[in-house]
Each structure stands twice: as structure tokens, then as C-alpha cells.
Amino acid sequence: MASETTPIRARLRLPTHLLRPGGGGFGMVPMIASVVLALIVLAALFAPFITLHDPVQMSPAQRLKPPSAGFPLGTDAYGRDLMARVIYGARVSLIIGIGASICSVVIGLAIGLVSGFFRYADAVVMRIMDGLMAMPSVLLAIAIVSLVGPSIWTVMFAITIPEIPRVVRLVRSIVLAARDEPYVEAAIAAGTSLPRILWRHLMPNTFAPLSVQATYVCASAILTEAILSFLGAGVSTETPTWGNIMAEGRMYFLIKPELIFWPGLALSLCILSINLIGDAARDILDPRMARRKE
């Protein structure tokens, strides 16, 4: 048996060092992930130049056509170019992902700083955060989108709200730890103004963990958008997103699985890349993780 496993191991050992996450600096996997993500972002930015058709132009005569020179990935049920839709879909999905992560981090940072620093605000704020966190996020998001009416902005808002408490908790815990540090106590004793303490002394501590958190929020937001579309609470298909292309295409899964496959592949690759980059960033930034590398 041993003699049989050895060659397999040997063969598999070849790429092993390449796969090592953050083995020495930025490893191969995060590197590949960054390249993939960069390609997706570039495609989104230059969508008008690399697509052959308008992603919303319908031509009923061209419904559900297989791939051809004119339509490299074929067409959807309205005769729209699937490739154009997937590429334009990257725009909205990324806007929602990045938007939700920026919003939740900024709002969460503000609330977390205040909550961590002012004891009297803390109790109230944290009860509210606990309440928000207790509500099932996807159900909350469906409710918000369905009640307020779907648009990119409502979807982004609905995804952001449930993420805020997690950021607040993170920031608060960092602030609580930092405010007892001698340099912060010294600054308070020296009569440094409050905003300055928050801004100069406390906030920088949060940057590293927040940037890691932001990548995860971004990935989860893109995924949540897809789930919302699937459940019928997503953005109109006039604005293609990976989620709503799949949601619309699932009716045709038996005859044209590409309608789910291509946007699904783009979405999975994108999220996979973001998660891997997030993992790598955490490994580099988290000193506890560094020890595990030994």
C-alpha cells in the first residue's frame, strides 16, 4: 500500500508549495485570486468595449439561441446576449458587494467607536445591535427589499443592515482593548480632544481587522444578492446582475443550463477570489495566525 501511495504523494507534492497560503509573504493562491479578481473588475469597468451587444436589447426572434459568432455564449429567453449580460452583471454585483462592505464598515466603525468609548451609550447601542444580529439576515433583507421596493440601492441597504452589528462588535472589542493602553490613557490625561483620540489613537487599530472583515462582507453581499434574486426580491432584470441572470435562467435549466452556469461560474470565481484574498490578508495581518505558520 505504501508503495502505491508514495507516487501519488510525490506527484501531488509538486504543486503543494505553490498552494501554500501565505507560506512566505503573498503565496501563489492569493496571487492567482488577485489576478482573477482584477480581470473581473477590469471586465466590469470596460464592459462597453468588450461586449458585442447591449445587455438589455431584446430581440424575440433570437430567443434561447446556442452560442454563435454573434452571441459567444448564446442568448437568454428574451434574445439578449448572455455574454454581455454576464459582463455587465459584474458591474452591479461588484457595486453591491463593494458598496455594502464600505457602508457597513463606515457605519459600523462610527457606531463601534462611540459604543466602545462611551460607556453610557454602550449598553443601549449593544442591545440594538444584538437585536439586529438576532434577526435572520436573509429574511430581514427580503422583507426590506419587498416592502421598500427593489433597486440596487435598496438591495445594498438591505444587505448592509444585518452586517453592521458584526462590524460594531469587532470595532468595539478593539476599542475596549485599546482604551486601557497607556498611550491612550496618556492622551486622555493630556486633555487631547475626544475626536482626536478617536481619530488618531483608536481608529488606526481597527484598520487591519476591518479590511479583512470588509472582504468577507463583500463576498457575502454578492452571494446574498443572488439569493434575493432567486427568491424574487432582487433588482429588475433590466439591470443585469449575476444573481438575477441566474434567477431568470433557472426556468430554462433543463434546456439551457448555460444561463445558470456562466453567471454562476463568474459569481463563484469572484467570491472565491475575494475569500482567498481575505484569508491571505488575515494571515498576514493577524499576529496569532503568524504563529501558526511556524
Binding site: M58, P150, G232, T237
Partner: peptide
């Protein structure tokens, strides 16, 4: 524009165009 009712989700798109 209803998004979840397959039979009448297309009319608004065509009308808009």
C-alpha cells in the same frame, strides 16, 4: 414590473422598449 410572475414579467420590458 412584476419579477416573479413568469407570464407577465415580459410585457413591461417590451412596452418600455
Amino acid at each position: 414590473q412584476p419579477t416573479d410572475n413568469a407570464s407577465i414579467t415580459t410585457q413591461p420590458l417590451v412596452a418600455a422598449q
